[in-house]
Computed example of a mutant assay.
Amino acid sequence: MPDIVELGERPYVALRGKVAMNEISAFADRMREVIDWLAAREIAPNDAPFFKYDVVDMEAGLGLEIGFPVDDLHSGEGEIVTGVLPAGRYASTTYHGHPDGLVDATRDLLAWADEKGLEWDADGDRWTARLEIYKSDPREVPNMADWDTELQFKLKD
């Protein structure tokens, strides 16, 4: 069941790209670039990796960032960007299962918020913070059907 959670600011480092829906998994395979960038600068992630959907346009493509929260704000370079996930109220739910099921989990979260009369912090297709946080480490949970993924979508203040 979804909840509304209050979260503080969270600095992050990510790889930014524009991808079609059918290219998400190939883009996700580039997570290693973020890991290597962080390691080269001796910056440790402080939580699980995430996908941040900045633009959700099923026809024109997705504005997507894949990255990690970190303790302090840094300067990016090239395709590596840095930013701060804003403080505020988020609609949150945890999905257990293969990432293919996240489309349905997202639809369910959007419908729940609509039923509750909640308003997203978004401007059309552009979202302030729409996150999929991958809580399961593939080295420890190799079967993707056993993964836990938290959805956190920022609500309007």
Rank of each mutant, 00 (worst) to 15 (best):
W37N: 00
I133Q: 02
R107P: 15
K116P: 06
D137N: 04
D146T: 13
F27Q: 09
L38Y: 13
Y53D: 04
G8H: 12
D36H: 12
P142H: 01
T94A: 02
R126G: 09
A40S: 15
V103L: 09
E59C: 06
V70A: 04
R16Q: 15
D3P: 09
T128M: 07
E9M: 09
M21T: 13
L85D: 10
E119H: 11
L15T: 12
P49S: 05
R126F: 07
Q152M: 10
H98C: 10
T94P: 06
D108R: 05
E77Q: 12
V81Y: 09
E77A: 04
D157F: 01
E23F: 13
I133H: 01
R41Q: 02
R41Y: 03
E42G: 11
E42H: 08
W112T: 03
E65I: 06
W37Q: 14
H98P: 15
W120Y: 07
R139Q: 10
N46M: 12
G83E: 03
A20L: 15
S92W: 11
E59A: 15
R41D: 00
K18M: 14
E140C: 08
F68Y: 07
M1A: 12
D137M: 11
T82H: 00
I133G: 01
E23M: 15
L109H: 00
P49R: 06
D36L: 14
A14M: 05
A91L: 03
D121N: 13
A105Q: 05
L62S: 08
D36S: 14
A111L: 12
T93D: 11
P49G: 02
A122V: 02
